[in-house]
Amino acid sequence: MLGSVFTKTLRDQRRSVIGWLLGIVLLIAYVVAFWPSMERSPALTQITEELPEALRAFVGGADLTTARGFFSTQLFAFMLPVLVGILAVGKGAATVAGEEERGDLDLLLAQPVPRWRVALEKAAAVLATIAAVVAVSCAVLWTGIAVIGADVTAAEVARGMVGLGLLGWLLAAVALAVGAATGHRGTAVAAGAVVGLLAYLASTFARLANGLGWLAAASPWTWAFRGDALGEGPGASGVAGLVVLTAALLAAGIWRFTERDVGV
């Protein structure tokens, strides 16, 4: 694990990632376990049907009476993106800016590795970590769904998880790029949090207001999940948009990192 900057960065993240994974797995297990009783309860079905349109949109706009809509809403409309988002922003900010503030980036940058490559390998490690967390979440959710026999296909689970992972990548890229460009961990965390929050608000509230549909359409949150995460997923254009934006942010941040004074 100490052979390269990439593997070393993976190693740095493993302990806290295991904690996050545990939390995410528990959340998935809880929501999955809840579905069978939900499905059998006509009262609950009735309540959700009577929800005002605005409130339905707020929780993702999905149909809560189907398993697909239920999981889309309970997991992907808010909880999973928040958990993965916090992990992504935290790791993205800690990885370059955090190390610079702590001071141990100095000695690393004195090794015969180009500065852009140090940042690139660290970014790749953060993205790989997020991908691994989402992959495990995907396996856990699919297993849970199979166990309770809910009417959701593996492809639908995968679609939602791809959207989740790419949204996580984007938020990590925001924090990492801002951190690499400024060297300030706090600024990086703030940038990631603000982008995540605005994307969420634009995707949910703008959909309710007349004439603000363009705002919802411009939100990466919408790109990742569309109307309901398991039903539509990000689609080819959503995937492309999120990947391109992630790559562009990382490229800009790393470029700025190679140009500036480090550790001042």
Partner: peptide, 28 residues
């Protein structure tokens, strides 16, 4: 070139030997 910074901050999670291994690998 070898470098020793004045405000020496080293990854606290590593052992001294692991630190030397890591930088040794980066140096090929």
């Amino acid at each position: 070139t070898g470098y020793l910074p004045s405000e020496l901050a080293l990854d606290p999670r590593l052992t001294a030997g692991e630190l030397l291994d890591y930088y040794g690998h980066l140096r090929g």
